[in-house]
Design a protein around this nucleic acid. Sequence first.
DNA 1: ATAATAGTGTCTATCAGACAATATAGT
DNA 2: ACTATATTGTCTGATAGACACTATTAT
Lengths: 231, 231
Amino acid sequence: MPHPLPSGPEQRPIATVDIVIVTLSEGALRLGLQRRDREPHKGELALIGGYVRPEEDGDIEASARRILADKGRLTGLYLEQLRSFGGPSRDPRGWSISIAYLALVPEATLRAAETRGAPPFELIDPDRCPRLPFDHGRIIAAALQRLRSKASYSTLPAFLLGSQFTLPELKSVYETVMGTPLNDSAFRRKLMEMHILEEVEAKAAATAERKRPAQLYRLAKETLTEFDRTV
Amino acid sequence: MPHPLPSGPEQRPIATVDIVIVTLSEGALRLGLQRRDREPHKGELALIGGYVRPEEDGDIEASARRILADKGRLTGLYLEQLRSFGGPSRDPRGWSISIAYLALVPEATLRAAETRGAPPFELIDPDRCPRLPFDHGRIIAAALQRLRSKASYSTLPAFLLGSQFTLPELKSVYETVMGTPLNDSAFRRKLMEMHILEEVEAKAAATAERKRPAQLYRLAKETLTEFDRTV
DNA sequence: ATAATAGTGTCTATCAGACAATATAGT
DNA sequence: ACTATATTGTCTGATAGACACTATTAT
């Protein structure tokens, strides 16, 4: 059943990108949300997002990175596409598609962005997240599901830490993201066997309460590594 | 740096859906491709795809199912979203977004669709696939990667079989998709322990060359099940 | 009976978790 | 020396793979 060609621009859906920024604050996962600076839903807490701009973006990831830079003063983050959401009622402006991204950022990077003039990020506990505009609740659910399911067989959680970290810190992030305690010696054994870490020629500072300083490591590869087993 | 609002329809990217149809023919994975019935690339072999139609589709999956039904006479398939691809040059008509889907279909269903009037599907060996128009090669690569990586911990390969199948058949599909031989007794043990199969009160037919008939099973759940371990 | 595939039982190697033992540095 | 955390070593239980053995049905 042939239809009139719906190729004309007037019949195209709106195309946007929404980015779920996840960070780690005081050992717990937090969503980095901002208050919207324009209608619709001006002033409400929401994911950062924006239009795909054909005239300037080379691809969709470029749209996402432009939006992160413009609205969050954030560059160089770990970023991965989640999936796309579409429908007539998810945005009051009309039938829209949102390509959702997950971004992981160390808290210090987020704070530094605010210092450089980014509108403030509110760090929201995903378990206590208020109802959000559009379908941002659904998008966040997809992001957390991806983060949790991919954590155990990849270096994903490491992108919530800075470039150097100790093994106990790394283990703690895995535990936080996965929501389950891990065995100490098994964790070390596996990470060492997989050769995904490199020693840094320095140790973390000891303090009054953190007696023995731990060895610092960095990721051997700057990009995500997937394992053939779980941590 | 505020821009003129790119919200007007005239600045929206083209929004399309492309579907990677995968089937199993003579024990091997095959792509179900059709020759394009219109420009651009009319007459060339390609994925089936089409526009997202805001005026009639309830969401993006509805677009995909409409396209499967219209161009392939296919309904009720296993369908999952892969990811979206976008850019200025992937489609000669302009800056476009394609939301890619993976569809799994038993070969008999594909043949039945042709009998009902669908344009013929050519079953292409993914390892011998000619260069395809648009960025369909990339989309197919993403589909195969998803299929292969998800196979070992889910019921995904079962959707390449009909509604009833024997354990040796199921094991063979897993082996084909994963590209590696599996241990017979371990395969049975695990599938039985996970309770994802139900016995059907019938056995497969024996033949001259297939002596002992095997027990038939069906999936206990019609939808995809993910395991907490591998097969 | 024989052939061929379906299905079961058992042994073993591997790997993850438990946990004890040791190491290091601040106080 | 004492404390707290980091790191290593060893034991044990669970599980996957190898493979031999039994079962079933057509010829």
